[in-house]
Design a protein around this nucleic acid. Structure first.
Lengths: 249, 249
DNA sequence: GCAATAGTGTCTTTTAGACAGTATCTT
DNA sequence: AAGATACTGTCTAAAAGACACTATTGC
């Protein structure tokens, strides 16, 4: 905090919150972008976000940064986040043509079934874009391509040693679905037996007793599992997730 | 960014940068705190920090958030950071009595030999405090105890699977010194052979050919090593660092 | 029966973890 | 020589990684 210049008030930058919303749809990792309806970058695609509302006299007021992120998320998707984590804060004199702007970026994971895109509100359009490698095939507004790259990197990195991937699935899921999710995120096939051993050891998921997946398309019905709520622990896999190098059958 | 309310200007929070500066001194992890010379919390100890200077017409101007962090660091320690990483951004209406304040916190690692505490400037006093478990034996100003807990947690966590600990040592160091550093940070003894195997495999250090540690206090002189500059890779140890459970000899 | 997906058992390879040995310095 | 610290070799235990086998459904 200010330890100097006791009472001087400094000019302060505009403060924004942006949210990178990830979901898995059609077997691909996707990110929610909105088309800007006003300048600057009118017509360009951008991460959803907006100003932090710090004036208690205004109708919209954000008690905290995270509350602001949750509000933006709700406005764009119609739901609360299954998972919300602060990614980074960017701030400099050049990233926004209007001057020195600071933006705190969150990233969220939401199962596709829960998302209800909010069209026709303030945003001209909202759409899911497929993540391709480290980015999306589009030039985004501001420095949002770079922010998105960071978000994707963080997501992939955390998938390696935590259980966050479960937040991209519905409450109940099969182990094959979970493995598929990991494979989509990592872009690599995983070894089934080792994957299940790791899960069991980490205690990340537990059986929904006596409940099996219905509507199989031919094949043995799978046991349904649910996420085991965790204490405040970040790291579940002492080693990284198990890859496989075997060719597909 | 603002995708709504095209041109409306919102009230914006005060924007600060704080820095958690870690070093190792007298075999212990320490953190730099300064005594506040003005209200609020006058006389209390706090993390060094200050307002982000975004007015190009002022004599002090921060081109970016990171530049502001580097400036604060230089003001308090007299040196550039060996390692500087953004930790988190906190912001809400309650953490500062003066209202809604946003603060981006960085954490820095500096070898003790390089630090020159800057007394007699604006800060009433600057001092290194020993980290004890997850905190420091002091009640700090604002929410700085909580921020510090987060910083310590992040530091310990990153030590497990990256090479950041080397930034707490001088440019040239012995493997025993490096191991000691890891042990101080983790609070646990490590297995020597396995530790060296991991280092070799990860390739994070390399010999300074033909150069040995001088001034040994009896004992075989150790080979000096230096940090191998890395590409943009975060994770060096595929598994966690090797513990040992054997009792000391 | 066959195709398809779920789930398990076991063998091999890698590496962590333990421990004891050798090496090289100061005094 | 004694003491101290540096460094290495090797054994064991545990987990990753590969692969093949069995199980249960729909058609």
């Amino acid at each position: 905090m200010t330890t100097e210049n006791k009472h001087k008030e400094y000019k302060t930058p505009k403060s924004m919150v942006d949210v990178v919303i990830f979901t898995i749809d059609e077997g691909k990792l996707k990110v929610l972008l909105i088309k800007r309806g006003a300048d600057p970058y009118k017509g360009a695609w951008a991460l959803p976000g907006g100003a932090v509302r710090v004036d208690p006299k205004e109708p919209v007021f954000d008690e905290s940064l995270e509350a602001a992120a949750k509000r933006e998320l709700l406005e764009e998707t119609g739901v609360e986040a299954s998972y919300l984590e602060q990614l980074m804060t960017v701030g400099d004199s050049k990233r926004d043509p209007s001057g020195w702007v600071l933006s705190t970026v969150y990233f969220a994971l939401i199962p596709i079934e829960k998302i209800r895109l909010q069209h026709g509100t303030d945003a001209a359009d909202a759409r899911l874009f497929t993540v391709n490698g480290n980015s999306v095939n589009k030039t985004l507004a501001y420095d949002h391509n770079e922010i998105l790259r960071n978000a994707i990197k963080r997501l992939r990195s955390k998938v390696e040693y935590t259980s966050i991937a479960v937040h991209l699935l519905p409450d109940e899921f099969t182990l094959s679905e979970l493995q598929k999710t990991y494979e989509i995120l990592l872009g690599e096939p995983l070894a089934k037996a080792a994957f299940r051993r790791s899960l069991a050891k980490a205690g990340i998921v537990e059986e929904v007793k006596g409940k099996m997946k219905e509507f199989t398309h031919g094949g043995r019905p799978a046991q349904l599992y649910k996420f085991t709520p965790q204490q405040d622990v970040d790291i579940f896999f002492p080693r990284s997730i198990t890859r496989t190098s075997s060719s597909a059958p």
